[in-house]
Design a protein around this nucleic acid. Structure first.
Length: 467
RNA sequence: GCUCCCUUCGUCUAGUGGCCUAGGACGCUGGCCUCUCACGCCGGUAACAGGGGUUCGAAUCCCCUAGGGAGCGCCA
């Protein structure tokens, strides 16, 4: 039997980090077993579902490279099928019409809560004959009254629920539209889903779904309820916790490789291994190795992984991804050194593409500004004669390369009895506009003779009026 | 309130009765390297929620307590 997994988001917002991990695990499990990964959009809540959300989710899946073999299927396009199953269940006595109004239900619920009871439907319509007018009635599932439902969860183990804890849930609204617990069951059945991997907030829904599946005489899938992801402070993830949207991470300069690696390790492990390529995780992933407890997000570790991939991915690849970030900062990547060479230099000092773009800006613009007070101070107190000598020496340099530049600067420093740093720092500020840059020789060689000399002269002039 | 789930360093985790005076990673931190910032390398810090059992032996098995989480919708 081929493994078939699915990811079934509801389009009521963007794809966040928790959903992405659920999708990843389902994707990995399907690929690991040469199975099929299905994408299904659960949009039966007409009020809250939007096409913008659908697009946002699709975009995020694409960014992460979580391709689906089937779908996206939309539940709103399957209403005929749901109606058909509803009709069948009614006919077979597995479901019944209920005419209790929302208000009545709310009243009874409040009363139950006041009595400190578990709020649940009292089944008063269960044994009544079907009402003549069905237009305002909902349809409820006739849950078994006694016995237990055992969920053999692949992550949590054997979990038992008593049927008398479960009430008769609504499977179709008064307007005829089906509800979640019913549509998942029908879809998982129709789509032959063999492994349901989802957040453990669904664990308590599972016995109801199993009961419906049994009423439909359908085989049960394997369930794997993975723990939730918590925010940094251990509280449930929410929009208030910052960049939880996958595409926000994209915008912040994170690589999908890093995100995937971070996510796969959040709740799953393979011994002490930390770094997993997509191929490795696909080959190694197993539900058995999923951790049972909730995990808190650790942004610093994600950052570390991101830099790891910036450092180890092919230079040309990183350069290609850096370009849009340069452009977004008003920089023309063609108006300066080879982006590949810049990446080579910056990737061990930047943790994100955003940071890399900002650190590299000075290579591509015509005019730089020195705004940092510390940088300005260095220019103001620079050893003028040495700086002048260095400018001259560089101007006279035959071959403009890092080694030659280094030789000259060392010679000038020695001549003026300066530690190398005393000469390198003012030059650095002059050309990069900052106290921080890659090594001065490689920086100058990449920047090019013209821009280097322009900026050195500007720096000398900057000092001139104040002397 | 009821039902269910969870509990190893700050965080992610290894660990499935002796290999554990509990390992790795991120972070933090001391040092080395050094023209700045980084990278890299070497070292340090820090945990089995608590209490009872079972056992020759328990992070690992059982029970209780505490704490955290989820569900209890004509949301998904």
């Amino acid at each position: 039997m081929t493994v078939r997994t699915r990811f079934a988001p509801s389009p009521t917002g963007y794809l966040h980090i928790g959903g992405a991990r659920t999708a990843l695990y389902s994707w990995l499990y399907a690929h690991r077993h040469h199975g099929v990964f299905v994408l299904r959009i659960e949009d039966t809540d007409l009020e809250r579902s939007t096409t913008e959300s659908v697009n946002a989710i699709l975009e995020a899946m694409d960014f992460l490279g979580l391709s689906y073999d089937e779908g996206p299927f939309y539940q709103t396009k399957r209403f005929d099928r749901y109606r058909e199953v509803l009709k069948q269940m009614l006919a077979q006595g597995h479901a019944y019409y209920c005419t209790c109004s929302k208000e009545e239900l709310a009243e009874r619920r409040a009363a139950q809560e006041a009595r400190k009871e578990k709020p649940r439907y009292d089944r008063r319509c269960r044994n009544r004959p079907a009402p003549a007018d069905v237009s305002r009635a909902v349809i409820r599932f006739k849950n078994p009254l006694d016995g237990d439902v055992v969920v053999n969860d692949a992550v949590k183990g054997r979990v038992t629920f008593a049927n008398d804890e479960l009430d008769d849930l609504i499977i179709a609204r008064a307007d005829g539209t089906p509800t979640y617990n019913f549509t998942v069951v029908v879809d998982d059945m129709d789509m032959n889903i063999t492994h349901v991997i989802r957040g453990d907030d669904h664990l308590t829904n599972t016995p109801r779904q199993i009961n419906i599946l049994r009423a439909l005489d359908a085989p049960l899938p394997v369930y794997a309820h993975i723990p939730m992801i918590l925010g940094e402070d251990g509280a449930r993830l929410s929009k208030r916790h910052g960049a939880v949207s996958v595409m926000q991470y994209h915008d912040d300069g994170y690589l999908p490789e890093a995100l995937l690696n971070y996510l796969v390790r959040l709740g799953w492990s393979h011994g002490d291994q930390e770094i997993f390529s997509r191929e490795e995780m696909t080959g190694l992933f197993d539900i058995e190795d999923i951790h049972r407890a909730a995990a808190s997000i650790n942004p610093k570790k994600l950052l570390w992984l991101n830099q790891h991939y910036l450092k180890t991915l092919p230079v040309a690849d990183v350069a290609q991804r850096l370009r849009p970030f340069l452009v977004a900062r008003g920089v023309d990547p063609e108006h300066g050194p080879q982006v590949d060479a810049v990446v080579e230099l910056q990737r061990e000092r930047a943790k994100t593409l955003v940071e890399m773009a900002e650190l590299s800006r000075f290579f591509f613009v015509d005019e730089i500004e020195v705004t940092e007070p510390k940088a300005r101070a260095i220019l103001a107190t620079a050893p003028q004669p040495a700086l002048q000598a260095a400018t001259g020496a560089l101007e006279a340099l035959a071959d403009w390369n890092a080694a030659a530049i280094h030789d000259r600067l060392t010679a000038v420093a020695t001549e003026y009895a300066l530690p190398f740093g005393k000469l390198a720092q003012p030059i650095r500020v002059a050309v990069a506009g900052s106290t921080v840059s890659p090594p001065i020789d490689t920086t100058l060689s990449l920047l090019g003779r013209t821009r280097t000399l322009q900026r050195l002269r500007a720096a000398l002039a900057f000092r001139a009026p104040t002397t």
